[in-house]
Design a protein around this nucleic acid. Structure first.
Lengths: 199, 199, 199, 199
DNA sequence: AATGAATGAGCTTTCATTCAT
DNA sequence: CATGAATGAAAGCTCATTCAT
């Protein structure tokens, strides 16, 4: 039990640091969050951060891995096989929504982040891409969608969503872009895709 | 005469700094370009930069203002009134193409830039938006386009283009995304927009 | 009995730490060996070191005291009274040889070490000096040695040996300077000392 | 002239830093002298050091190069070709004497110093070795010296001198080991070398 | 106007030491 | 007795900004 108590303490602190870092990353972005900010906000000393993470990059990598994992997991669950494209897009936005500011920071800064962080980001896009592609294929075969290369369709959707997120300050100054525009984006995007013959 | 000569020199130096900064910003991005890099590349001293610009932020702002102005100007000229949507999109990409690396840096980093820089960026989008909207309106009225809110169509186009630029390393590792994908993007984007009845 | 068992454990742990520290000091020197290295290599926790030693300096001091003691002991045994100078020099090198890397670290770094460590080191030299002096005195009286102040002869010998040890990388890159040069050093040193009349 | 004034200022500061660093290295050794110590002692700010030297290692390297150069130069001049061994040894000690504490720090810590610093040190020994060897060769040919490998003779001399310097605190607590023991060392060393046949 | 030496706040990282468990 | 999480004082280094020349 003693053991458990210590381990618990350590895990709690690490978790606290990850949560705090997540919060700060969401609020201020990755690049302008300092280790001392995280330590301060978590109420621990500067050095404690280095007890749990060998470097700032490692901390970033871990935080991103954890939350990107959650988002991916969420999307996965919602966008199960056999769903329509609309359902997949919903799942995508739903997966993002809970962590919107964090995801936005990732959209905005991922190219300046250390490699492991970038990797996690790229992986996330792949997961989404997979579900998207399957749904598109099914609907294309069913003649419901204009025949356009799937990759282009995907990039168009991703570009659209990321554009709205990246310009949160313009579209929804208080945050919550997805809540405000999500349905609109899906509706109109699907409208465009709808096969002309299907009308 | 002396005065004029001095002023001339001053203007020349300032212009030189702006050009040099533009080049470096294009090559390495805004955030990783140091003042000393710019001064060094321009062949002037470190301190000279501060003679012409009160701060690094001011320099950035001015460089961006100048080149964003050029891009806007270019787009303006090409996308004159009375053009089709395709011509406007072409004009847009053409305006970008000449300054692609710079524009890409702006797409990628504009949110970490000082407010004035971001403002110039937003203004540029407005200019493009204007031409885009007009063309869309004309074609909508002519029944050639699916009735979808113009702003959404615009953001979709912008998101698409920016997505490709932002992922240059993925789509066209050597740069020149527009050259490689421009036509494809326009074609497919227009295909989607084409009114079903029009077919 | 419980008490005894605890004490036993404590002693064992302390001994383990001393041995481990000795090993690491021999391999990497004193200054670049971290407490965590020692704890890790000994398979105990970081904090355990401080249970047995109030500080890193104290640990160093104790390790040095123990092993310097062993070297002194060894030299003592080998260089019993009544021996010739050659035998004393042999004894000296023999005493060192077993702990050569450790002794070399001491030669190299003793001046940056905490006072108690340095003291132990100086004491060791005294012990050696004692045997050396006696032998020199005997041989001088026997007219076998050039009349030169004993202290000088001793420092010359010590300087010579230490010089070779300190430059191990130069003289015997793989270590084992004594094995390789010991005899040569003794032979030539004695050759120099040999009384001219004695020839 | 303007130019000269700025250059002069820079050179002066750099020289000041080198001199200050030299002083601190002499007093406390290389390893325990911090950049902030040097800056503080020189009366300049922390950052100024980095204006003149890219890193602490570079500073060390330059200080060592400069002063080792001076010592080498000095020895060179005094130990001109054609001198007797005694004169060469005198030259050696004379070259050292002026910078004794610095040279002592070098003797003591050179193995923990960054490579460029080590190199300068090794070079210095080579210079000394050269003069030594020549003189020994001449005197050996003249039958004045016991036939013993020159390298051994050199290492013996070097070991002797360095031993005294390294143990300054024992031999001459106030410093000035050379002044106090120089002559003694030379006299007795030569006495040992004197060919028996020459008596 | 141009220079560039000097500044110092700010950052990441290391590691001996403490102490609650 | 042993543990190991937490601490925080240092240290090296960067770079925008200032200002005397």
């Amino acid at each position: 039990m003693k053991k458990t108590s210590r381990q618990l303490q350590k895990e709690q602190t690490k978790e606290l640091l990850i949560k705090t870092a997540f919060k700060l990353f969401s609020e201020r972005g990755f690049l302008s969050t300092r280790i001392s900010d995280i330590a301060g906000a978590a109420g621990v000393s500067h050095g404690t951060v280095f007890v749990h993470f060998p470097s700032l990059d490692a901390l970033m990598a871990e935080v991103i891995e954890v939350y990107v994992g959650k988002i991916a997991q969420r999307t996965h669950e919602l966008a199960d096989s056999g769903k329509t494209l609309r359902e997949v897009l919903c799942a995508h936005l739903n997966g993002i929504q809970e962590y919107e500011p964090f995801y936005t920071a990732l959209v905005t800064e991922n190219r300046q982040l250390p490699p492991p962080a970038r990797d996690a980001w790229v992986t996330l896009q792949s997961v989404i891409s997979l579900h998207f592609s399957r749904a598109v294929q099914r609907e294309t075969e069913a003649g419901k969608i204009i025949p356009i290369p799937t990759s282009l369709l995907f990039n168009m959707w991703l570009g659209l969503v990321h554009h709205y997120l990246a310009n949160t300050d313009l579209f929804a100054p208080g945050g919550k872009v997805i809540e405000r525009y999500g349905e609109t984006l899906i509706d109109n995007y699907l409208k465009l895709l709808a096969s002309k013959g299907a009308e």
